[in-house]
Write a protein that binds this DNA or RNA. Structure first.
Lengths: 220, 220
DNA sequence: ATGTTATGCTTACGCTGTAAGTGAGTCAAG
DNA sequence: CTTGACTCACTTACAGCGTAAGCATAACAT
C-alpha cells in the first residue's frame, strides 16, 4: 500500500499561535488564574513541558495574549476628527477589555510592546499630531486618556454587583454604614435605595471631561 | 524564687496588627510576589500556619494591608474648597501609592471596604456634596478622578525606565521602531532624543482636565 | 487541681512554573 | 537504503505556594 501523501496519524502540529489561541480561550472561560501551563497543555492534548517548545516561558504567553486582545481594539484613523477618533478608540477599548476581564490587569501591569500595541499607539499619536497637537501634548493626552480608560475599566470589572442589584444591595449594606460615622456614604446609599440615583458610572462622564479639556490645548 | 510578675520568656505575642505590619514591610521590600505566608511567618519567627490564628486566610492579609495604605492618604476636608481638596487628595494618593508600588494593583483588583477606605470615600463624597454637587454628579466625579489617578499610577509604576534615561533609551530602541511602520512613534522618539520632548507624564495634566470640567457641572 | 481556651507547631495535599533528560518521528545527505 | 541531525512531545523532578487537619503546650478560670 502506498504511503498516504500527507501525514496520517500525526497529531495536529502545535504552534505558538495555537498555544496563544487556547490561552485566550482558557482565560476567557475561567479567568487568568485558571491559565496554568498544565491546564493549557491539557486543553491542547499535550503535556505541560511541550509548550516550552513554542514559547520561552509563561510570560511570553501573557505578552502574546495581551497583544492579541489589543488587536481587537478599533484603531484611530490618522487624519480623522480627533475627538471622534479618540472617543471611538476609548469606547472600543473599554468594550474589548470588558469582553476579556483578565486583560486589563495584564495591560497595566507589564510593558507591552507587541506589534498590535505598537500600531495602536502609533495610530493614536498620529491622529492627535495630525489634528494639530504638539508631540508633547499628544503624548500627555494619550497617556491621560488611557490612564482614565484603564482605571475606569478596572474599577468596573472589580465592582462585585450588577447595576440592577444596586438598590437592594444598598439596602442590605446600609446597617454597616452608620450615618454618624459615614454620613455621606449613608446619604449616597439612601439616594440609591430611593431610586433618585442609579449608581451607574459612565465611561462617557470622565472621558468627555478629558476630551473637552484637550480641545482647549490643541494648536492650529 | 518568686515567679516573675509578667510573662518572662514568652515570645512577643502575635497579633493581627503585627502580622499586617510585617506584611506591609515585606511587600515594600520585595514586592507583592514575595509576600507569602511562609516568608511572612519566618519574618515573625513563627511557622506559616500560626498566622491562621490571627487571619482567616491570605486574602484577609491583602485586604488589611491595602486598608493600612489607604490610611496614609490625605483625606479631603468636608467644607473646604472642593478643587483644592480634590487636588490635594489626588496628589497625596498618587504619592502614597508610589511609595508602596504593590498597593495600587490590590486596590483596583479587589473590593475594598476597610474602615480607612470607607472614611476616605465618605470624606470625598462629603466634600463634593458640600461644594454643591448633586449625589449623582459627586459619585461620577469621584469615580472619574479615582479611575484616572489609579490608572495613571499604574502606568507610571509599570514604566520600566527612569525619566533621566528616556533619551538614551529612545536612541537604543529607535531601530526597532521603523519609520515606515510606526511613523509617529518614530517621530515621538526623535523628539525625545533631540530633547525637544522630555517624555514626562504628569498627574497634573489629566487631573486638571477633569477638575476643570467638573467645575462646569457644579450646582450652586 | 482541673478543665478550657488560645495559639504555635508538624505534617500533608494538591497545585504552581520550569530545569533536565529521554525517546520517537521526519527529513536531507551520503 | 542507510545514517545522522533535528524537531518536538514526553517523563521525571524540584522548590515553592495556600491551607486543611491534628497535636502540643502554656495561660487562665473554675
Amino acid at each position: 500500500m502506498a504511503k498516504a501523501k500527507k501525514p496520517v496519524k500525526r497529531r495536529a502540529a502545535l504552534t505558538k499561535d495555537r498555544v496563544l489561541n487556547a490561552a485566550v480561550k482558557l482565560a476567557d472561560t475561567g479567568g487568568i488564574d485558571s491559565l496554568s501551563m498544565r491546564k493549557l497543555a491539557s486543553r491542547l492534548r499535550v503535556e505541560a513541558m511541550s509548550l516550552y517548545n513554542h514559547v520561552a516561558n509563561k510570560d511570553e504567553i501573557l505578552d502574546g495574549i495581551v497583544d492579541k486582545i489589543v488587536g481587537e481594539i478599533e484603531v484611530p484613523t490618522v487624519g480623522g476628527d480627533w475627538r471622534v477618533e479618540m472617543h471611538r478608540r476609548s469606547t472600543s477599548a473599554h468594550e474589548v477589555l470588558m469582553r476579556h476581564p483578565w486583560a486589563t490587569m495584564l495591560i497595566v501591569s507589564r510593558a507591552n510592546v507587541g506589534p498590535h500595541m505598537l500600531h495602536y499607539v502609533d495610530s493614536t499619536i498620529g491622529c492627535l499630531i495630525e489634528a494639530g497637537f504638539s508631540y508633547t501634548t499628544a503624548d500627555q493626552a494619550w497617556n491621560a486618556i488611557d490612564s482614565y480608560v484603564h482605571g475606569f475599566t478596572l474599577q468596573k470589572l472589580n465592582f462585585p454587583f450588577e447595576p440592577d442589584e444596586y438598590a437592594e444591595v444598598a439596602k442590605a449594606y446600609l446597617p454597616q454604614i452608620p450615618e454618624e460615622q459615614y454620613p455621606y456614604l449613608h446619604g449616597m446609599s439612601q439616594e440609591v435605595i430611593a431610586g433618585r440615583h442609579d449608581g451607574l458610572h459612565d465611561l462617557e462622564f470622565g472621558l468627555n471631561l478629558i476630551l473637552d479639556g484637550l480641545e482647549e490645548l490643541r494648536g492650529d
